[in-house]
């Protein structure tokens, strides 16, 4: 049984059919990536899994629990965290307060230990712990968004475009961190426009086009696939 099983979901924005009968799964310990052009429906899928949007059909199962239709704030308690697109850190709150909010679902006794672990992983955040998040650089905000998601001790972490707007050197750093998190036992579902980076660390990937899954395979297979190369890897 997969950790996350998505079966035949259809998501609409008003009259726009953004996600069309999509099915995919993520096994425990994997890094799975959804790649595709802007508007292919990648973010919509993540938001539907995390409960911010709802599918009209199909089912979403996480750790054997049906979570389709469950409100987002309850899904977090089951061990599923999302690092949203554009980071969405709380800009007027300090770095440390952001991390505390990440631990909202955890008992108070775990908060300081969790913060210490995040600072170990992201020493830069420790230096800036008393600063409000709005004063951080884009890369630091991305680290904060990831650290905040980690605070809930997720079994599955979903990342929405973590490389967006970052300098290439930072993108490498962020992907190294994602790989390290995975090696520490966190399962990863990654949405990316930077297909080459995403496929290079992913165990498996799904290629989306206008709301449909068109191809699937291992990271290496997709990197070598001629049509994927032509459409997403600039070659």
């Amino acid at each position: 049984m997969s950790m996350l099983n998505v079966e035949g979901i259809n998501v609409y924005y008003g009259a726009i059919h953004a996600v069309k009968d999509i099915s995919f799964h993520v096994d425990e310990g994997e890094i799975v990536t959804l790649i595709g052009a802007n508007g292919a429906g990648k973010s919509t899928i993540l938001k539907t899994v995390s409960g911010l949007l709802h599918s009209r059909t199909g089912s979403i199962t996480f750790l054997d629990h049906g979570i389709a239709g469950v409100p987002a704030h309850k899904i977090v308690y089951q061990g599923l965290a999302q690092v949203p697109e554009g980071r969405q850190v709380f800009l007027q709150m300090t770095v440390e307060e952001n991390l505390e909010m990440g631990a909202f679902t955890r008992p108070n006794s775990e908060v300081s230990g969790g913060i210490a672990r995040v600072y170990e992983q992201f020493p830069r955040l420790k230096e800036r712990r008393r600063q409000v998040a709005g004063t951080l650089s884009g890369g630091e905000q991305q680290m904060l968004a990831m650290g905040r998601a980690l605070m809930s001790k997720p079994r599955l972490m979903m990342l929405d475009e973590p490389s967006m707007g970052l300098a290439p050197i930072l993108v490498e750093q962020i992907f190294d961190i994602i790989k390290a998190l995975n090696q520490d036992g966190t399962t990863i579902l990654l949405v990316e426009q930077n297909a080459r980076m995403a496929l290079s660390i992913a165990h498996r990937g799904y290629v989306l086009e206008t709301g449909h899954i068109v191809t699937t395979g291992t990271g290496a297979e997709l990197l070598a696939d001629e049509s994927v190369k032509r459409a997403y890897l600039g070659g």
């Binding site: 911010l52 409100p71 704030h73 949203p84 969405q88 709380f90 709150m93 505390e100 679902t105």
Partner: peptide
């Protein structure tokens, strides 16, 4: 307080607050 901070988080970004587990 935790609830007070959650209130500030909600006033800044409701979607992100929900992803933290806060009931808006």
């Amino acid at each position: 307080t935790k609830m007070g901070k959650a209130m500030r988080a909600c006033s800044e970004d409701k979607a992100a607050a929900q992803l933290m587990g806060i009931n808006v």
